[in-house]
Design a protein around this nucleic acid. Structure first.
Lengths: 191, 191, 191, 191
DNA sequence: GATGAATGAGACTTCATTCAT
DNA sequence: AATGAATGAAGTCTCATTCAT
């Protein structure tokens, strides 16, 4: 059973260039950038872009998928720290904060977050991220720090609604407002 | 200094028709409806539409302002109930819930919410709504039910991020997750 | 019941210009000319073209309909001559010949002919032309010159298959080959 | 003078595969199929396809030539039957009918017919078919059944214009209309 | 000689906005 | 003041053909 024939080196290079360029462009100007602009930024012709991604939706999807992977990596790193002894509730909050900050400068991450919030998650990276978050949540619940009925879905739901277009102060405030819903401690006044 | 010459009666009528039609269209299909469609729904020509609103942004803005007025009315009604003896914290949560449900069927309300979250609020209706919400918050704080550092801005911030595209269950869950951030009670398990 | 509001003078002018230009372009280069080219030839912007004809198909259809009208006119003129005493069989053959010659320099006429051959004919001009041809055929059958079972459909069928891409000699020969199928006389040798 | 170096075995194989695939695709979807689709159907890459046929036109031409060969075969078979005693006029009509029916399910045959009608015929298969048809015609003329001035070109001319896009009834009717132009008998009414 | 990725002009269509009537 | 036709840039996608591997 021969494997699907190794992709050509230059095609791989181009695919990377396209994904990188698409990421940058979408990060900077949102998903409504033209395909021509993305192609130009990638240094290829539109046709090439369409060979790799038959549809704009496909391209945006691929970019978003990439961001999901990053988020998953982040979640797994957080879980590793928890396993190593860090407090789960803190790691969860910090993770949430990082994802929000990321989506501020990267509108594709926001879309990724929305995707996570919308779908049960059947792709690899989503599963990976979901599993890590779930483990963190469970750890926090075992500690008695995270409220027993909190689920991964709740976390997704929250960061799919984070105020990424707002100024830093508002984002911090939002996180502070939302955290008590996850933890068991009564809310404390901010400084 | 001559005053701005009283507007012609039919011009006034047209303005109303346009706003109403724009509201319906944007409610139904989002802000991406074409200007032609709005004009047709209003029973006027595009040119007329542009005479009243030099830009699509202006028109959408006007529609949004109308929804802000509704939200303000709702807030004032809630305040009236509080004044009449209702529990402020409950009214606040219920108000938040109503605004969210409204934005589900009315995409213009969503935009209105976003506007409120984004701007300090210098227009009449925003002030009106803001004042009512502020009064409710203060009442709840006086009762000891709402956390002392909660501000009107927090409320705006929250409903500007409500998950209006999600199914009802998710919206309810979101509200439950977010409420503890406003109140002083520790979070209780859901049924 | 007010009529549908008289069309604006300039719009009428443009519609004519567009139809004329589209006719020329399609005549010259076939139906695959670009909409931009047609618009340029008409001296309008593409948008204008699309306002008048929402789809390329619509435009081509309109052009073809125009050619159908011409053919119908021709048929009626022939019928008039028959009524005035001309021999029906001769007029029929001559009419067939003229339509063929027309479709040589005008690919839109060819398409029109194909349309006629394909459809039962429910539009005005098609009916008009069909009625005239039918009358000529009947006259010829009354004279005993045209075979009794010939129908209008036969005529349409024939000129929908005329060899318009062939040199003049071939076109003439084709007509000569096809005529005996319509008439009652045994075929005569050509000069 | 070095001769053109014998072609590589796999190249020959590829040429055949390409022609076969192109035939199928054009038969099925008309000449507007993409080169990529043809290449895929042939199991080769586009580049290979272009090495064998520098232009789409060339490829289509080659396919068409293949269909010409089939028609020639058919004509020779008919001639054989005539030689064996069959009535030439009948064989000619039947042959015409078969070619028409073939072009209905095979759009490449139609193109082939058009080619035959258009060109004097200088390729092998065209000559072969032309010679057979000519012999049949001559036999019919000797019988007194086929009109003396009918030529091979007439036959080509006729089937280059057959209504292959029309329903079976129309095709049959067309053949009936056209036959009297070839034969010496006066036309008879259809049943 | 084969592969298949890259090219890029061009196709159709949409829509916010302007302007002659 | 209203009308609605005109504008034209922009958008997504296709496809015959070229060329590096």
């Amino acid at each position: 059973m021969t494997q699907a024939r190794a992709p050509r080196a230059d095609a791989v290079r181009n695919r990377k260039k396209i994904l990188a360029a698409a990421g940058e462009q979408i990060t900077a100007h949102g998903p409504e950038v033209g395909m021509d602009e993305i192609a130009a930024a990638a240094g290829v012709a539109v046709g090439t872009l369409y060979r790799h991604f038959p549809t704009k939706t496909d391209l945006v999807g691929a970019v978003v998928a990439g961001r999901v992977a990053r988020v998953a990596d982040d979640a797994e790193a957080a879980l590793a720290r928890v396993t190593a002894g860090a407090r789960a509730a803190d790691e969860l909050t910090a993770f949430l904060g990082r994802v929000i900050e990321a989506s501020v400068t990267d509108r594709a991450v926001k879309a990724a977050a929305r995707t996570l919030g919308a779908e049960p998650g059947d792709h690899d990276d989503e599963d990976r991220g979901g599993a890590a978050v779930a483990a963190i949540v469970r750890a926090g619940q075992a500690d008695g720090d995270i409220h027993p009925d909190v689920t991964v879905g709740d976390i997704y739901l929250l960061f799919s609604t984070a105020p990424t277009e707002q100024p830093p102060a508002a984002r911090a405030r939002w996180l502070a407002l939302v955290t008590p819903g996850l933890t068991t401690r009564a809310r404390q006044a901010e400084s």
